[in-house]
């Protein structure tokens, strides 16, 4: 990937730090967060790479990444980060940047299957909507 002054979105770091309350700039790229992430195999960017791209302000690459939507907010990374960074909040920060745009929702009631409606616990459906639509 080519990093140029055009691709770097310098406000991104500030924006995501504000939404998440996390000091993304203090990540030292140790990779421990990615090492323990249970969703790693389905991610196109690893959690520590999201942090690095955020530091560099590469908004496009983060926003189009599948990683944001497969992170299950399991808090494992946060429990292990030596810089005490909570990546579940950073991921949420990026998700809300998209979700708060008009038409930004990524989950719609019509996508629930009849089987899910019949069997899935309320908790699953409510969590899903809280996470994927605003």
């Amino acid at each position: 990937m080519k990093v140029t002054t055009d691709t770097i979105c310098s406000d991104l770091l500030k924006e995501v730090e504000e939404y998440s309350g996390e000091k993304v700039a203090s990540c030292i790229q140790c990779g421990k967060c990615s090492g323990g992430c249970p969703m790693l195999e389905a991610m196109d960017l690893l959690p520590h790479q999201v942090m690095r791209l955020a530091q560099l302000g590469l908004k496009e690459d983060i926003m189009k990444s599948k990683t944001l939507w497969v992170c299950a907010s399991c808090f494992t990374c946060a429990a292990r980060c030596q810089r005490d960074l909570d990546l579940s909040k950073v991921m949420e920060g990026f998700r809300v940047i998209q979700l708060r745009q008009k038409g930004g929702n990524t989950m719609h009631p019509r996508q629930l299957t009849p089987e899910q409606l019949k069997d899935a616990p309320q908790q699953a459906i409510i969590s899903g909507f809280r996470k994927y639509s605003k």
Partner: peptide, 19 residues
């Protein structure tokens, strides 16, 4: 203590199944 995939079973069934 690993995650079961939580609500991803609604949106990303394959992933929840693997987890």
């Amino acid at each position: 203590t690993d995650c079961c995939g939580a609500y991803l079973s609604i949106t990303e069934e394959g992933l929840a199944r693997d987890t």
